[in-house]
Structures are given as structure tokens and as C-alpha cells.
Design a binder for these strands. Sequence first.
DNA 1: TCGTTTTTGATTAATATTGATCAAAAGTAA
DNA 2: TTACTTTTGATCAATATTAATCAAAAACGA
Lengths: 252, 252
Amino acid sequence: MNFQERKKKILAALDDAESLTVFELAEILDASPATIRRDLGDIAEEGLLLRTHGGAMKIENPILTGFSEKSGVNSPVKERIAERAASYVQDGDIIFLDCGSTVFQMCRFLKKKSIRVITNSLPVLAELIDVASIQINLIGGELNKARKAVHGDKAVQHINGYHANKAFIGVDGLSAENGLTAHSEHESTITTAFIRNAGQVMLLCDATKIGRDSYVKFAELSAIHTLITDAGADAAKTTALQQNGLHVEIAG
Amino acid sequence: MNFQERKKKILAALDDAESLTVFELAEILDASPATIRRDLGDIAEEGLLLRTHGGAMKIENPILTGFSEKSGVNSPVKERIAERAASYVQDGDIIFLDCGSTVFQMCRFLKKKSIRVITNSLPVLAELIDVASIQINLIGGELNKARKAVHGDKAVQHINGYHANKAFIGVDGLSAENGLTAHSEHESTITTAFIRNAGQVMLLCDATKIGRDSYVKFAELSAIHTLITDAGADAAKTTALQQNGLHVEIAG
DNA sequence: TCGTTTTTGATTAATATTGATCAAAAGTAA
DNA sequence: TTACTTTTGATCAATATTAATCAAAAACGA
């Protein structure tokens, strides 16, 4: 048995047992204590379990090594935008989170809050499902496997059945002339539904998207209350947005 | 055999076996270990499998690991029931799958089919999301974190918006006197909705639950078309069910 | 057909993993 | 605190795996 297999089994065993000794694990995996110790050291370094004297303990909220890193586009810029956006969320809030990557980054900063999250994004779901203080409503509908999100007519209807104080959304393009634009109609109908049913709409949008237009025009600038972007934003363009009544926050 | 063919076979083999050694693969593909190593290196670079020391492992979607079913507790009995149930599913079917553990076991046997699955179960979602031939609709609503499933009023409404040829459901208790019973009202309303909106209803139920009653009575026996159970079922009790018009299948 | 390119399989040196041993460190009890 | 036990990390030898190299085989194009 190789390290990866053992790692998987160790984590599975710990998930059941809360905590196990080196010898118990050695027995379970039919490996020597020396090997188990080496493994535990390595896995603990990844942050997936807690090394104790004599064994290991399950970690309650293991860092999600998967999506956040593999999505690759985990830039510090998006992180700063996400952190600022999360600062708008208060205990007791009911919020919509859409399926953009910047919005996803918010999850990290929401885990301490007591809120209800309504989302169509599976990564958001996966990231928050183990957080006891957060209740989740999932938008139902057709599953878009590539985007790992739910969309379609039924999803829009479903969103219309909810109201949230705040919506946090992403776009593919944003300009004073054309408002909010998207690459895909599917995605834009979902975003529109979030906007329609939220008290306050926050748009998370890195500087590269400002002044850029995609081909599906789906909402006016006036639909948005606050734009959260980064310091790279072009001053002329953001000024144009502000003159259209948009409140612009520069994160970082 | 060329690389593309081997790649396909390697991935198929891994899908079944979870993890394989270089030598096992060399045997399966009738190629030399050197070739297998080269192949594994290339495929791993594409991100389609995980190269281990000595072999390769199936890669699992990081998003679903969070809510995948613990694969430890699948009894052979449940497996046989699930396999029999899956044999009722044909290409082109649209099926409801509820969130029971026996129903979950069906996923393994559905992967080769071209169907649409409508479910409220996150483990089912996780298990099937990577199967290209299966389209998924997710039931939306309130998330029950413990059960890793969606329930609630909105979920029931949502189910009412769908129709499926077949529904595959579980129960906590089943008897000729009291029909279908459940531990929880939340769960039973979902099951009821599946029953109401399906052309044909298959009940997956191991022998221990037959003749047992739980406290929420939620459907008559006549709502079910076929009961799939195991050889451990008490003859007197199953006869009583059959006399009530139920078609009983013994799996295994 | 022949010559060229690509792929394969065998060989081998380099590397990685494992379990055993043992001194040092950490925990435990009085 | 001290004495005692347990756990650990380091090292080492044995074993297994790998990557690199090269010749043979297969595929390909003219």
C-alpha cells in the first residue's frame, strides 16, 4: 500500500473515530508504526489532521485543498476583494452567493459568522457545509457539471421564492455604457434573479473586468448598490461608474 | 494498442478499482511496465489520475469529497438490492433517487446508463457528477447537513415541478397494516413528493425493515409498485404484503 | 520497396519507501 | 522535583520503484 492510499484510509478512519493512536492505525492499515508516524507527520503538515502525542485527531474544518487551489485563479487580488465583501456580512444576514470564483473566495471569511446562505454553487456548498453556524439553502434545478452550479428555468423560479438582505454576485463585464454583461445566458438569468430578490446587491469584480463588455446585457448599473474592486481599477472608468450613482469600494 | 486506447482502459479500470499497481495495469493491458509508467505519467499530467509510488489512484473530484458517502458501511445485502433495483433502469429513463443509503448504492450500477437523475441527495450528486452519460437535476431547498440532503417545503414544491418515469425510494418501516412509515417528517414529505410525481415507484428495503413500523405514517402500500428486498425477508410478512397487491422482488 | 519517425520493452543506475533499532524527548506518576 | 514509561525522530540496511538509455519493433510516408 502506498502513501496516498494510506492517507485516504487514515483520514477516513479518523473521520469515524475522532482520534486514533499510532498503533491502532498501524493495525488498521497493516503497516509499521514507523510508517504511520511518517504518514501522520506528512498529513498533519498538509493541515488535514491534528498530530497528537501517540496518535492523531480529526480536524473539524479541514482546509479545502481541492477547489480553492486547483481553481488556480486564486489571486491575492480576488482574495482582498472577497475579504472586503465579507466584511459587509453581519450575523443574522441572509445572503445570496452566486457561482463566481471571487464570490467563492468569500467563504473563507464567512466561517465565523452566523448567517443563512442561499446559493446555486456546489463549491460554496462544499466549503460551508461543515460550518455549524451557517445554514444553507440550495437552489435546485438543472446541474451544470462544468460550472459546478445549478441553473435553468426551475432554478430561477426557485430563487424567486426567496428573499435575501444581500446578494453577492460576479459578472464578466461592467461598464457605464452597457451595465452588467455576461458570457452566458444561463448564468445571467441566475444573477438577474439574485438581483431581483435581494435588498442590497454587491458586485465583486476585479479591475480587469471594468470597462469591458461581454455579449449578454442583463442588468442596468442602477441594479447594483456597491461595487467592490481592486486598486488596479482605471480611475476614469470607476469615476464614470460613480457618476452613474454606483458606490465604489476599492479593496486592499 | 495505442496510447489513446490504453488511456481509456486505464481510466476505466481505475474507475472500478479505485487504485491499481503498475504491474496490475501491465497485466490488464498486456503491456510492459515501462509503457504503463510512461502512460501513467502522461495521464497524470493531464490531471486525470493520481500517480502514486508503484501505481495510480483514481482522482476524486475535490468538491465532492466533502459530501461523499462514507464508503465503509455498505453491506452486501444492500448492494444486491441496489443492483437489482438498478436493473430496472433503462437508457432514456428519468428517475428520482431519494437520500437513503440503499438507494445511494444504486449509483455504482447506474454509471453505464444514459439517464436523467433527479435527486435531493448530495452523496448521489457527488457520485454521479462525473458520469458524462448522466444528467442531474438537483432538488433545491433547505439543506439538512447531517443527512447530506435537501428537504423542506420548497423542496417538495420543487419536486412537484418534475415528473419521472420511476422513483427509487427507501423507508424506515413497512408493514401490511401501516403501509410506509418514517422516522422523520421532513424525510417523509420528500418521499411522498417523489411517489406522487413518479410513474412507477420502487421501494428498496432490506429485510429488517419489513413488518417494522416507525412513527410517521406517510403512504399506503398501494402507492408502491415494486418492493425490492433480500432473501432474509420473513415469508409470512412478505406474503401479507403480496396479498395487498405489492409486487415483491427478492434480490440475490 | 526503403528510409524515417515513433513507440515499445529491456537494462541499469538512481531514487524512494519501508521496518528495525536506538538515543533523545515528551509525558506520567509519585 | 525525580524516576519511570512511552513516544518520537534519526539512521540504516533491505527492498521496490522509477527515470534514463538504447536497441528492436512497429507505424508511416514517399
